[in-house]
Design a protein around this nucleic acid. Structure first.
Lengths: 183, 183, 183, 183
DNA sequence: CATTAAACGAGACGGTACGTCATGTCTTTGA
DNA sequence: TCAAAGACATGACGTACCGTCTCGTTTAATG
């Protein structure tokens, strides 16, 4: 026998509520209780499918990215493609997705399981994408791509976290320009 | 009457306890209650001088760095100096100081005041130091130094947070090598 | 059309489970969820036929008593008959039936409907039986029988609840002895 | 060092709230959460001093009885004293105290510790008092007093629980009358 | 027989009380 | 007047059971 099937309505409402609360109150101030309340669902329904608010937001983020992440640009101009890719990434990072992923990264510092999931579902795919773009000629062939990825996304993360500067098109162009100067 | 003066003993015990707990349980699991308990002080004594655990740990970190941060290397060999500087920085980052600063950065995402203090007391001094080292010839003169700093420290932060790779001497050398290839 | 008829198997399993759980965990710790689980039935099947665990246990108790309650003794010796009747009653009260009826009485304190059903199905029939036994000469004719019933069953209930003394043959004989001294 | 002393205000408010809620909603519907809320105290403050609502109400009841229980009557007329004593007892039993003690007795069925406390603090003192009154001549000297106490208070408890008749002066007089007929 | 409608098991749903924990404030005694 | 101790009001935590609601699966009486 099967029992009542999971309510897709409730699932969507919970993910939606989690994102809304994150946008409204900031990641740290989101609570499981608040998510359930705003979603109009019972607390147990949230806990039945996710262990922590981080799990909820990770799934919410995954869903959002699945919809919003664009195709890799491939115009033949390596440098222009890199700028396009970065600006697309930065646009996402400036929105709720950025807030969520920064919060998740913060929580992941004290939750190894979350850290692994975050890397597997969010971080590594983006790293692979950047690596692919870089490999098309944005840096010389003999440059260690992992290092280049660390430098480029590192700069983005650093600015997202520390907020000492914007993560915008200007940054994308400066990075592409500097990488192009490597001989 | 002037009252009883602030107890330096209590202050030290609290900062020490905060660092110990951070090393033992991780930043997120440190609590004000726990700090007071381990320090053998009253809860109110902690709150009298600091508002949050972040403030406590920020002061503890500041004290630690004041003791442990070495002089800027200046041997005349710009690239070697950069490697030395980075390795010194990375060594600190791999220890408790790294754990603390990552936790503080996480908390700072939802606490603007803490973010400002963190930048002023910890982040910006290190940025200035790296900038100084870079300015001695590790990169061409016309490279925007702020960008270079973002890329270098960004890579460090990215690895500290995401833990996909070590923050060690190899990284220092790879970074210095890549910067040296910019023409 | 009539649909599937009620399953007698499920009904028996549920009443059995309710009694077993009451014996194992005590009345207060019995839950509807637990009853359904132990009975191997769905929760809705329990709720379809009974509103509360009290209703379930009341029916279970009624079934048990229907099987186990013996005939009224009638040997001609009024005092001996009273002792026999009391000892039969006390034996039931010392078993699961006692535990159940005490629990039901407790619940009935905050459930008037249950209280009425409990009186109608369990309490009053036993009162009538005791009254009949007493009326055969165990007390003088001019003694108010309702009062005598209250005193005798009251003592039983008091001991069942408060557990300051056993509800056993000795009690039966002492009661009969004292009633016999009323002139 | 000693710390902040227990707040007598909070203690009184909690006991008061427990009694009020018991009177308003019935014993079974009283919750720890509700008590704290009505008392205007924190939930932890209740749990700090009492483990269960039964403990709270037991202490509340003890306090009430300490104030309201009158002296034992001793006029020289044994039967009149018994009636007076019973009517005083019944008056208490008809009020909130009766509701509380019945609820406590119900809970005590599944909580041995509570049962012991209830006997020690409430039940046994009243038994001793009734015994003293009976010993002054309300029953013949050779009647087993424990049994007489069981019959008299048993009748009261039976009526309190089962509500098939009032617990009033008429009952007091009938009981005294019947006891007087024992030869 | 095939139809059909209600009972069945399973289990998810929105609620709510549970007992615990950390928060930041307060109120004592003692130094 | 500060320090320790610890009680205070508050509110989130994760769990348990409540009573209701879907599901897909029996199971008999009816057409």
């Amino acid at each position: 026998m099967v029992g009542r099937p999971r309510s897709e309505v409730a699932r969507k409402a919970i993910l939606r509520a989690a994102l809304d609360l994150c946008a409204r109150d900031g990641y740290q101030n989101v609570t499981m209780k608040g998510i359930a309340q705003v979603a109009g669902s019972g607390r147990q329904t949230v806990y039945r499918w996710w262990q922590t608010k981080a799990q909820v937001l990770l799934e919410a983020l995954t869903d959002v990215l699945a919809e919003e992440v664009p195709e890799l640009p491939d115009t033949g101009d390596a440098r222009a493609d890199l700028v396009t890719f970065l600006e697309q990434t930065f646009t996402l990072a400036r929105g709720v997705a950025g807030q969520v992923v920064v919060g998740l990264m913060a929580d992941a510092q004290s939750d190894a399981e979350l850290a692994a999931e975050l890397r597997a579902k969010i971080i590594n795919p983006r790293r692979a994408a950047l690596r692919a773009v870089l490999a098309r000629g944005a840096v010389p062939d003999d440059v260690e791509l992992e290092l280049a990825v660390d430098l480029v996304f590192g700069a983005m993360w650093y600015r997202l976290l520390n907020r000492h500067a914007e993560v915008n098109q200007e940054l994308a162009e400066e990075i592409a320009g500097l990488l192009a100067r490597i001989n």
